[in-house]
Write a protein that binds this DNA or RNA. Sequence first.
DNA 1: TGCTACTATGCACACGTTAACATAAAACGT
DNA 2: ACGTTTTATGTTAACGTGTGCATAGTAGCA
Lengths: 347, 347
Amino acid sequence: MPGNILDVARLAGVSHTTVSRILRNADGFSYAPDTRQKVLAAARKLGYVPNSAARFMRLKKTRLIGLTTQTHNAYATYRLIEKISLRVRKLGYAPVLIDLSEPDLAAGGFLDVTHLAGAICMYAKHERELVGRCARIGRNLPMVTVRRKVTDNPGVRMVATDNAGGLAQAFRHLQGLGHRRIGYLGYREPDPSRQSTYAAMCRQAGMPRQVFAVPVCAENNPFLSGMQMARAVARGRRVSAVLCEDDEFAAGLIAGLGDLKLNVPGDISVVGFDDLPFAAAVRPRLTTVGVKMDEKADAAVRLLVALIEGNAVQQGLLPESIVLDAELIVRDSTAQPPPKERPTHAR
Amino acid sequence: MPGNILDVARLAGVSHTTVSRILRNADGFSYAPDTRQKVLAAARKLGYVPNSAARFMRLKKTRLIGLTTQTHNAYATYRLIEKISLRVRKLGYAPVLIDLSEPDLAAGGFLDVTHLAGAICMYAKHERELVGRCARIGRNLPMVTVRRKVTDNPGVRMVATDNAGGLAQAFRHLQGLGHRRIGYLGYREPDPSRQSTYAAMCRQAGMPRQVFAVPVCAENNPFLSGMQMARAVARGRRVSAVLCEDDEFAAGLIAGLGDLKLNVPGDISVVGFDDLPFAAAVRPRLTTVGVKMDEKADAAVRLLVALIEGNAVQQGLLPESIVLDAELIVRDSTAQPPPKERPTHAR
DNA sequence: TGCTACTATGCACACGTTAACATAAAACGT
DNA sequence: ACGTTTTATGTTAACGTGTGCATAGTAGCA
């Protein structure tokens, strides 16, 4: 509405072609400095902004990168969004958070996968289905998934944290402290890579397994969920340490255990996951598996852009997936088990 | 790329107009059931998805609602985004989180304010400037700002929480418990409505004022910021209670005070703001001012949609702003001040 | 002077959709 | 049987860009 390219052309006394070329700095064309001035002045005067829909129609290309997610983990996700956005912009693309999970959005909406240069799918629930649909509609849209667990979507690159490795570190840390019965607190929909790592570690160590599954959501609030699980965790004192799926669970669990007069780490050790902003600000400070958010964002964006610009791909230079290592951060929520729990024979 | 409307028309053996009308269920037209079938089948077979850019060009209208923000408060923001998105979709619009603060996005990008049916600006920092620019470029784009503080952007509707009221409730709560020296912990950029309310309450109660200002960001982590302020708050024991700008500060502060061997609420009472998900899951459970996120999201969306569809506006039925009342939620982080602090004369 | 090469600019079309206008057939009323 | 409304469909233009092709002028060169 606020003027199109023809208005600018008329005001500058040139053809709209000239305006288009001058405003875009199209190369391969030379224009008289005089003409250039007139065009620039006219555009400024009218407050001209190119119509991006028209542009897209012509070019069939955008520099929009869609970010999509579906998660309970507000903190981790929001931080990831921020970091990815920053990097995306730095490379000359524009990030858009959009829900690609609604099929009718693509059908009846005004912004769909066909508009995107690429997409980053973060912690999506029905990831496989989503990616499939986007690839189909979007004519094999370049996609990168950011996932805790490693999945195998053919043709879609992935960035993930080495959760198995992180979990193993945490497990060994607890084992080293003398724990012999270590539990796992996670969502009901299990995270395969972690649960299987947990199972493997238990087996290897000759320990019993004890998984506490949180019902999908207590008001969609992972803190409360964790808190409510305290009773189950404490029952019968079957474990002396718990590995949690994320820091929010861990924080809630610690609070809940406190209400039951159980001390962390005195009676039970707790390990979180993600190293969220509050991990060092709760008491006891959380021992947790740190996930490198910055590097994760960076890797995801670089992978996607390489995929979009497609030179490295053909040369076979682009890795199928990037797995960032996780790092155990030992703080105050883990300690030796209470005396009676300690192994009788040293190890 | 995956087929346009003409392809569908050709396959169905009808004109593209027919296809357009049938697929959109355009009313005012009747079609033979037979034709309708053929068209639908053809569209399905080709996996036809209308090109939304072309559509926008023709209609000059979309059903996209832009959400924009710029905040440190990840939790509150993310939750608001979720809730707003849900409601927006329910009304047949599509939400898009987009950074409108970058001027060059509007200029060179592929999605700008002119594509939006409306925008909701949540907790933005340079709100006034942002709104001004959007209104200018977007040909007075319908906008609603969601803000803690009440601002006066002419022509832009607003939804806010009655922070002053909430703060007053919290203040009176502390006053009623016997506190005579109440501090305020906030960001360095002050929130006028709250700080002035705080000042007014102090004056009215004949109490000294004591504002603790957090330097803009400790790693952009409000928890750590709050934690680091504990030393300043504790110094000289000048206050027996602190009102915090948000729950994250409060949680951090409590942890920091604990490190200094100060007990909350035994030695110092702490009040948060926002009632974030963890408020009931930290120990001591946080006394806080609850903000009605659901109602806030609801009000913002309804206001915006009314603005867009513009019938209520002309009738003057649309309020300039909606202020939702805040509600003090008393939990365990507030109590009577320690004995020596109590007023000698009853009140 | 002629021929070529380059500079500076314009014309006209295509992208995919919707909507105003047009039209042929069928149904309806008398 | 004939005018009139209704039903079912088609024709065509327009939205605002970018680009292939065309062109007029100007310079270089022999």
